[in-house]
Amino acid sequence: MNLDKISRKDLYDILCNMPKAELHIHIEGSLEPELLFELATRNGILLPYATIPELRAAYDFTDLQSFLDIYYAGAGVLQNEEDFFDMAWAYLKRAKTEHILHAEIFFDPQTHMARGIPFKTVINGLDRAISQAREELGLSASLIPCFLRHLSEDDAFAALEDALPFRDKFIGVGLDSSERGNPPEKFARVFARCRELGLRLVAHAGEEGPAEYIRHALDLLHAERIDHGVHSLDDPQLVARLAQQQIPLTICPLSNVKLRVFSSLSAHNIGTLLAAGIAVTINSDDPAYFGGYLNRNYTATFAALPELGAREAYQLARNSFQASFVDESIKNEWIRELDEFFSGMEQELTPAPNNGK
């Protein structure tokens, strides 16, 4: 493929229509205000916001913690299995329209268990939506429960024990919530136990936290992917390691701007990370709160960063498949589909010879 033939004016359609995977999506963060109000009414819950516009106006975050406060409050409308199904099904239908072939979906069981919602209720609702998406939409998806790092490791162990009877319904574990004051090593023992159980391991690091947290997530937690990781550029040796070992970073550009990690998309370092040879991917994080699903993260980022073109679009999509936790044969099938898409775009956009006429 000669991707240089594809002009910037064709990028929007390419970004929206190319096959891709999403590896960093918190399903509770996909709960749109309309569905949130619907579930609140269904479950007899009084919200502190009278209208949908009033709720949306509250999405003016100053940092990660100010977002988490409203995020956890919004999760309170999720009460029964049907609620979790409806939330996941809404995201998966949206994912299908955005040409997402595969999603690895985070969820926060401790947020719900603290409200008396059993793990069984949460995962059965989410898993049912995934099964329906596979059958009706032809869309692949997997679940990754995350430990909340602002809670103790004992709490994480308790959540793991509650999860294990449903081991067939999730593929790994993650670590999320507020980084500040909660370094990866706080969860070294529970991650070691998860590794013994054969679970895939990912961890948020280097979003608000320093590059050191990324190294500790790799060395102490044995994380296979780093969620965010944008502060890795502060450590040149870490950058070299990420590139050499092809450790994926699941970057969420709109989230990074919304939470003031970067002042604007034009100041984002994703282009530099990609140019350094790191296996960068683009994701939406908490799209209902941060202003855009996966395609919006792609199109807004490429519009803001002129150094990103068709070649980078292809690489980001390819990285998303390569970094997924599926069999190599399936990855290769998706990458072939991606190659065919770009080859078709190249042919479509190449003018036919006029033969001198």
Rank of each mutant, 00 (worst) to 15 (best):
Glu307Ser: 13
Gly344Ala: 11
Arg311His: 05
Asp83Ile: 12
Glu212Val: 06
Leu11Lys: 01
Ala73Phe: 11
Pro145Thr: 00
Pro145Cys: 06
Leu316His: 10
Phe84Tyr: 12
Gly198Asn: 14
Phe302Arg: 05
Asp234Lys: 05
Cys16Phe: 04
Phe85Gln: 08
Arg336Tyr: 10
Asn319Ala: 03
Arg56Ala: 08
Glu207Pro: 00
Ile105His: 03
Ala21Phe: 05
Asn319Asp: 07
Glu22Gly: 14
Ile25Glu: 03
Leu274Gly: 08
Lys96Val: 11
Glu179Ile: 10
Val257Trp: 11
Ala158Met: 10
Ile171Leu: 14
Asn80Asp: 11
Glu307Gly: 09
Phe302Asp: 09
Leu349Phe: 03
Tyr12Cys: 12
Gln132Arg: 15
Asp63Lys: 07
Gly291Pro: 11
Ser66Met: 13
Ser263Val: 14
Ala133Tyr: 04
Arg296Trp: 14
Thr272Tyr: 05
Leu164Ser: 09
Leu175Trp: 05
Phe170Ile: 06
Thr51Val: 09
Arg225Glu: 00
Ile330Gln: 00
Val326Glu: 01
Asp108Cys: 05
Pro33His: 05
Leu143Lys: 04
Gly174Tyr: 07
Ala73Ile: 15
Asp4Phe: 14
Phe157Asn: 01
Lys120Pro: 07
Phe84Gln: 03
Leu151Trp: 12
Ala279Pro: 09
Ala75Gln: 11
Glu161Pro: 08
Leu349Glu: 01
Trp89Asp: 08
Ile14Ala: 02
Leu92His: 06
Gly209Trp: 13
Cys146Thr: 12
Pro236Ser: 04
Glu135Pro: 07
Asp60Pro: 09
Pro236Phe: 10
Gly291Arg: 14
Ala188His: 03
Met345His: 01
Val230Gln: 09
Gly174Thr: 07
Ala40Tyr: 01
Leu64Met: 08
Gln244Cys: 05
Trp89Tyr: 10
Asp4Pro: 01
Pro248Ile: 03
Pro19Trp: 08
Asn354Phe: 15
Leu308Ala: 01
Ala158Thr: 07
Ile270Asn: 08
Pro183Asn: 01
His150Ile: 15
Gly172Lys: 07
Glu185Trp: 11
Tyr49Cys: 03
Phe290Leu: 12
Asp10Glu: 12
Phe37Tyr: 05
Gly292Glu: 04
Ala188Ser: 09
Asn43Ala: 10
Arg180Val: 12
Thr350Leu: 15
Phe157Ser: 01
His26Met: 14
Thr299Ala: 11
Ser142Thr: 08
Ser343Lys: 14
His102Glu: 13
Ala90Gly: 03
Gly277Val: 09
Ile226Gln: 00
Phe85Cys: 02
Gly74Asn: 13
Ala275Val: 11
Gly271Val: 12
Met1Trp: 13
